[in-house]
Simulated scan of single mutants.
Amino acid sequence: MDKRKIAVFVGSLREGSFNRQLARALERLGEDRLEFDHVDIGSLPFYNQDFDGDYPQEGIALKAQVRAADAVLFVTPEYNRSVPGVLKNAIDLASRPYGDSAFAGLPAAVIGASVGAIGTAMAQQHLRNILSYLDMAVMPQPEAYLQFKDGLVDEDGRVTRQDTREFLEDFVDRFVEWIDRQRG
Rank of each mutant, 00 (worst) to 15 (best):
A23N: 03
N89M: 12
K63A: 07
A61V: 12
L73S: 05
G16Q: 15
L87I: 13
L93F: 08
S82W: 12
Q21F: 02
Q57E: 14
N19G: 04
D54N: 14
F18V: 03
V75N: 04
L73K: 06
P77K: 05
A61E: 13
A102E: 01
G30C: 00
A25T: 01
Y47M: 12
F51T: 07
F36N: 00
A102F: 04
R33S: 15
N80H: 13
Q21M: 07
L87W: 12
D40G: 05
I41W: 00
P84G: 14
G85A: 15
G85H: 12
D50H: 05
A102Q: 05
G16V: 07
H38K: 10
R24D: 15
V83N: 02
Y55R: 13
N80L: 10
F36D: 01
L22S: 01
S101I: 10
L26M: 09
Y98L: 15
A68T: 11
G30H: 00
A64N: 12
G16H: 14
S17Y: 05
G99Y: 08
R28M: 02
R67D: 12
R96Y: 08
A64F: 03
G105D: 11
P56V: 14
Y79H: 15
L93I: 15
E78Q: 09
K88G: 04
F36M: 11
I91G: 04
S101K: 07
L73T: 04
Y47V: 01
R20D: 08
V39N: 00
V83Y: 02
N19A: 11
L26Y: 01
A94E: 02
L73W: 10
Y98V: 10
I60W: 06
N19K: 02
D92M: 13
N48S: 11
G85T: 15
L73D: 02
A94Y: 04
N48M: 02
H38D: 07
F46Q: 03
D100G: 12
A71P: 03
R67A: 12
E78P: 04
G53S: 11
D32L: 02
G16D: 10
S43R: 13
Q65A: 12
H38G: 01
P56N: 11
F36A: 00
Q57G: 06
A69G: 09
E31F: 02
L22M: 05
N89L: 10
Q65P: 07
Q21W: 00
A104N: 09
Q21H: 06
S17Q: 10
S43F: 01
A102M: 07
A69V: 06
E27W: 01
G99C: 06
P84S: 13
L62S: 01
D52A: 05
F51W: 10
R28N: 09
E27L: 06
G99I: 09
A23G: 08
Y55C: 02
A69L: 09
V66F: 03
D100P: 03
A25G: 05
D92T: 04
P84R: 03
P84A: 13
N89R: 11
R81G: 05
Q65T: 14
Q57V: 11
F51R: 08
G105V: 08
R81L: 15
V72T: 13
D37N: 13
V75Y: 05
S82M: 15
S82L: 11
G16W: 12
V86Y: 07
N48T: 04
